[in-house]
C-alpha cells in the first residue's frame, strides 16, 4: 500500500495554515476518499462538505494542487503523489472552516435574475408546442450542478473581486438557458450589460476548463450572450434593421409556425 501526503488548509475567517497529513492510498481512490481517511484517522475536526460522491451534487468543490476541482471526481492516479497534494478551499469565497466556504453570494445573484416567463399557451388546453431542436440547445446548460468551480476560477471574481457588479459564469449559463429558451419571452439583455456586467468577461475560458459537467460555458453561453448584447447596444446596423422591422426578430411570441 502506497502512502501519500496531503497538504490541507486548516483554519477559519481569523486565519489558518497548511497542515501535512500522510495517509495510505490505494487504487481507485479519489481525493475525497483521502480526506475522509484523514478525517477518520488523524483530524477528526476537519471540516469538508460532501454529499453524493458521484460528481452530481457539487458540494465537495475545492482547490487541488491549485486548480478548482471536485474532490470526489479527482482520482489520485491523476495527481503526482511524489510531492504533497495541496487541498484548499475555494479562494473566491469567504472561508467558513477548513475546506468549507460560504457560497451564499451565488444564491443572492440568482435572485436578481429575471425568472422564466412563458408566452401565452399555444393550445386551448393551456399547453405549449416546442421543436425538440430548439430545446436541445439549452439542455446543455441544465447540466450545471452549481459546484461554483467556474465562479471560483473566474479572475473577475477571484482576483478583481467584482462581486457587486458581475454575475459570473454560472449565472451567464443560467441566463443563457432562460434567454435561449423557445418559450421564454422575458428580455434580460439590458441587465446582462448593466447590473450583471457581462462586459467584464474577457473570455479566458477558465470557467469552461474547470466545469466538471463539461458545459461549453464560454462558447455556448457567454459569447452568444455577448453577441446579443452587441446586437442591442453596439451594432448600429442591427438597430436600424430592428427599427425597420418594428421589433425584436429573434423572439417570436406566437405559436410555432
Amino acid at each position: 500500500m502506497a502512502t501519500a501526503t496531503f497538504r490541507v488548509w486548516r483554519g477559519d475567517r481569523e486565519g489558518g495554515r497548511f497542515q501535512d497529513y500522510s495517509t495510505v492510498v490505494s487504487e481507485g481512490m479519489v481525493v475525497l476518499d483521502a480526506m475522509h481517511r484523514v478525517q477518520a484517522e488523524q483530524a477528526h475536526d476537519l471540516a469538508l462538505r460532501w454529499n453524493c460522491k458521484a460528481g452530481k451534487c457539487g458540494s465537495c468543490s475545492a482547490e487541488i494542487n491549485g486548480m478548482p476541482r471536485l474532490m470526489c471526481m479527482t482520482r489520485l492516479n491523476q495527481l503526482p503523489l511524489d510531492k504533497p497534494v495541496t487541498v484548499e478551499p475555494l479562494r473566491a469565497f469567504p472561508p467558513v472552516r477548513d475546506l468549507v466556504t460560504d457560497v451564499s453570494w451565488n444564491f443572492e445573484v440568482k435572485k436578481s435574475i429575471k425568472p422564466f416567463k412563458s408566452r401565452v399557451p399555444d393550445a386551448p388546453d393551456g399547453t405549449w408546442r416546442m421543436a425538440q431542436k430548439d430545446v436541445d440547445r439549452v439542455q446543455e446548460f441544465r447540466k450545471c450542478i452549481e459546484c461554483f468551480l467556474c465562479q471560483d476560477v473566474c479572475h473577475v471574481l477571484r482576483e478583481h473581486r467584482k462581486f457587486a457588479e458581475f454575475a459570473g459564469p454560472r449565472y451567464f449559463v443560467h441566463m443563457a438557458a432562460l434567454e435561449m429558451h423557445p418559450l421564454d419571452v422575458e428580455d434580460r439583455t439590458a441587465e446582462l450589460k448593466g447590473t450583471h456586467s457581462i462586459g467584464y468577461c474577457n473570455i479566458t475560458t477558465c470557467c469552461r476548463k474547470v466545469c466538471p459537467e463539461n458545459i461549453t460555458i464560454t462558447e455556448n453561453a457567454i459569447i452568444p450572450l455577448k453577441e446579443r448584447v452587441a446586437d442591442r447596444f453596439y451594432d448600429p446596423l442591427t438597430k436600424l434593421f430592428r427599427i425597420l422591422r418594428g421589433g425584436d426578430s429573434r423572439r417570436s411570441t406566437g405559436p410555432p409556425r
Binding site: 421543436a131 462558447e219 459569447i223 452568444p224 453577441e227 446586437d231 410555432p256
Partner: peptide, 17 residues
C-alpha cells in the same frame, strides 16, 4: 467565427422555424 454563428442563427430562440 462566433459572430458568424450568432448571425446565422444563434440570435434566434426558435431556430427550427
Amino acid at each position: 467565427c462566433h459572430s458568424m454563428r450568432h448571425l446565422t442563427g444563434g440570435r434566434l430562440d426558435r431556430l427550427s422555424e
